[in-house]
């Protein structure tokens, strides 16, 4: 089966478009999260997504709307992580751990209440980008536009906040507002990334492209663009390879991201002189 033939399928086109949008969103947000040592927030929110999906399935909402229906609980969880972190009494990693455990534990209990694990819940654990529906495609587009607008409009504030929160505060930047915005968008991105890579691999979508771009030691703006480039490249190649070889797309996308990181890391070690 050649590439043009693959691209003719409607579900492949939807997967490609949604994948590119979600990858770009995850990479943009991931850059700020990684640099602020919130790398594991994706993992925490993904686990919460598991709990949220369990609630949604228990209620009996149509699988078509599970992504949208899971959003409110995940958003509340991200705000809880923010609140716990900003209390200064709990470290970020501990706060993520608390919410993450709560999400998984609640998910398992609710799945059990609904009569045990079922196929639907497992499909969310490992994701399947090829099953993206029109609602999810529209949601991905809206979130992409929102994240792009926030990053462009608040670029200076996000840059300062990522560099040093106290310094940003002394510049009159409303760090609380920017933080909440970042956490809210991350929650939405985590729910969408679940569709691409599955709950188990959401954090990879957020972390890996940013980490790969950071190895290149470029300016902030160029690193952001490179992160998006790596993320989009991994999604497009991942979907095509997965479709042709009949392999799971989410895992293939994550493996390609790790492949990019390894190549950039090795090339930098071998060819870039230390200053």
């Amino acid at each position: 089966m050649d590439l043009m033939e693959v691209m003719r399928y409607g579900f492949v086109q939807r997967a490609m478009i949604a994948g590119v949008l979600i990858a770009a969103v995850s990479a943009l947000l991931g850059m700020f999260l990684v640099l602020r040592r919130f790398s594991l927030i994706g993992d925490g929110l993904a686990h919460t997504t598991f709990g949220s999906v369990a609630v949604v399935l228990l209620i009996g909402i149509s699988p078509l709307y599970v992504t949208v229906a899971a959003l409110p609980l995940v958003i509340i969880s991200s705000l809880a992580i923010y609140k716990l972190t900003s209390s200064r009494k709990i470290n970020a990693d501990s706060a993520i751990g608390i919410i993450s455990s709560l999400g998984i534990a609640a998910g398992v209990v609710l799945a059990s209440l609904s009569g045990g694990y079922n196929v639907d819940l497992f499909s969310y654990l490992f994701g399947n980008i090829l099953t993206v529906n029109n609602t999810e495609l529209i949601l991905a587009f809206i979130v992409f536009v929102m994240v792009l607008a926030v990053v462009v409009y608040f670029y200076d504030d996000l840059f300062a906040l990522t560099f040093d929160q106290e310094l940003a505060c002394s510049m009159g930047i409303n760090t609380g507002r920017i933080n909440i915005l970042l956490f809210l968008l991350t929650a939405v991105a985590a729910v969408l990334a679940m569709k691409v890579a599955g709950i188990m691999l959401v954090s990879a979508m957020l972390i890996l492209p940013a980490l790969t771009a950071l190895q290149m030691s470029m300016s902030f703006r160029k690193t952001l663009i490179a992160a998006v480039g790596f993320a989009v490249g991994a999604v497009l190649c991942g979907i095509i390879i997965a479709f042709i070889l009949n392999l799971p797309a989410g895992a293939m996308i994550v493996l390609l991201n790790i492949c990019f990181l390894s190549v950039v890391f090795v090339v930098k070690k071998l060819y870039v002189p230390r200053r």
């Binding site: 200076d156 300062a160 560099f163 040093d164 310094l167 940003a168 470029m218 902030f220 703006r221 160029k222």
Partner: peptide, 19 residues
């Protein structure tokens, strides 16, 4: 700097013009 990440990809010019 309260938590300077040594991997922060900001150039000196970007930092000086910050804000």
């Amino acid at each position: 700097l309260s938590a300077l990440n040594t991997h922060f990809p900001g150039t000196v010019e970007e930092i000086i013009q910050m804000g």
